[in-house]
Design a protein around this nucleic acid. Sequence first.
DNA 1: AAGATGTTCAACCGCCGCGGA
DNA 2: TTCCGCGGCGGTTGAACATCT
Length: 255
Amino acid sequence: MVRTPYCDKKGLKKGPWTLEEDEILTSYINKHGHSNWRALPKHAGLLRCGKSCRLRWINYLKPDIKRGNFTNEEEETIIKMHESLGNRWSAIAAKLPGRTDNEIKNVWHTHLKKRLLNTNNNQPNSNTKKRVSKQKIKRSDSNSSTLTTASNCTFSSDFSSQEKNLDNSIICEDSLVTMPEIDESFWSETVIDDEISSTMPSNSMTVSNDLPDQQCIFNNSVENFQNPFDNDDDGMDFWYDVFIKSGESTELPEF
DNA sequence: AAGATGTTCAACCGCCGCGGA
DNA sequence: TTCCGCGGCGGTTGAACATCT
């Protein structure tokens, strides 16, 4: 028996898939299934190898794929399963319906691994300046507690757990502080303006580079705080001041 | 304004186990 | 028993984009 090579790379396209290719692949699989990946691209009229088609389908086009941010529960599951299984991404993915091994692997490497490292060290990485990525915001679903518009803030500790609302924790002045569940409307970034502030939700805060020194709007009133934008490393001090100002020392206010 | 740097994630690569010939 | 293609898996890469300097 002589079989042709699985993936004859001559003339086959590589790189990102186009919308048209996606439609061709989806349409073909919906009609005929995917019993033979090697033969599929030929029959469907795609200039891709079967492996590439399979990957595209499994990781992106399958109808039951869940897109968007991982929930707390999903991330906790990943962490727990990784503890027992190691890098067996497909086994972990089997426990998370709608999530692919590739996606889980990516989340692990970009968020969870760093988070665990910092947790294990039990101290913030003072060299890490975590930025709030607009790219991330653009790609993500509207999970309620992601930082959405405080993009000018720079924090002196790793903020990834808060950013993903993993355990609602941040590190304030070397203390782990638990954040309450907050609504997206909490975060806003506008020039202070009486008209705007009067329409803000009562539990919201406004900070901006354009604010007068050491002021922000908190619960609809102007409060004096350290301006977080004077100095990168003072960012967390600012938030800590806000929390203290709310009347609690390390416990955060209910927003 | 522009180059440098960091982050994210889709896609590729190479290896492995299984099963058919 | 051996060979080899296929499907599946984990590791890695690189383009795109955001942010910093």
